[in-house]
Nucleic acid binder design. Structure first.
Lengths: 104, 104
DNA sequence: ATAACACATAAGCACAGACTTATGTGATTC
DNA sequence: GAATCACATAAGTCTGTGCTTATGTGTTAT
């Protein structure tokens, strides 16, 4: 199940860091490694997990592979979260404001 | 970090099922086990993980312990998700509609 | 008071998964 | 065309974690 892949992928702190870096801008695997003290194979494996979860997608450019955030993964999380809207606290007003922001 | 506990807790399919059951209505640990083929200690351990993550909270009633969804956990997920709003696809319009629904 | 109950905790085991080193694959450079 | 580069894959190791059985703690019932 896709939902399982998503949560399992995000359960690892290293992968969340990678995702966060990609959210700040598309990058190839080597650039992602900068300042992360992680081996090249480890990075490649993490990216494979994120890709399988639909959180990240690749775009081959010669011998480089550019990675970027895949909106589909975020949509799955949003849909999962929406199932429990009955329990959303008032604090989620912040989220509502953000969405209102998107209307502009 | 709290964020880590949340994603790690939800990475387990059994715990997601438990959370889903609790979202349908508060229950004690024994009731949760119904139709789940899971031992009593396993259930207790899963609930401890969900509680530590802030996804679930307990309410002691005599020798029973009633469990319910804790909105705080969901809020943390929503806040994490909000960080990446720049990448939200149009599909998340569904979420916007739900929020509009809450205004009533 | 003693038994039965609801749940938590302890200890041990088995498997998943995050890492390592080594090697493979395809593209670029010289 | 040989070397180098960017990345993927393979195989093995080690830690984390979800399970088990056994036992502990507190509550209700008889």
């Amino acid at each position: 199940m896709m939902e399982h892949d998503i949560f399992r992928a995000l359960a690892d702190p290293t992968r969340r860091t990678i995702f966060e870096k990609l959210a700040a801008g598309s990058m190839n695997a080597s650039a992602l490694r900068q300042g992360m003290d992680i081996s090249q194979p480890a990075m490649s494996q993490h990216l494979a997990v994120l890709r399988a979860a639909g959180l990240v997608r690749e775009q081959k450019e010669g011998r480089f592979v550019n990675y970027e955030v895949d909106p589909d993964g975020l949509a799955l999380i949003a849909e999962w979260l929406a199932k429990y809207r009955a329990y959303w606290p008032a604090r989620i007003d912040a989220l509502r404001l953000l969405l209102k922001d998107m209307d502009q």
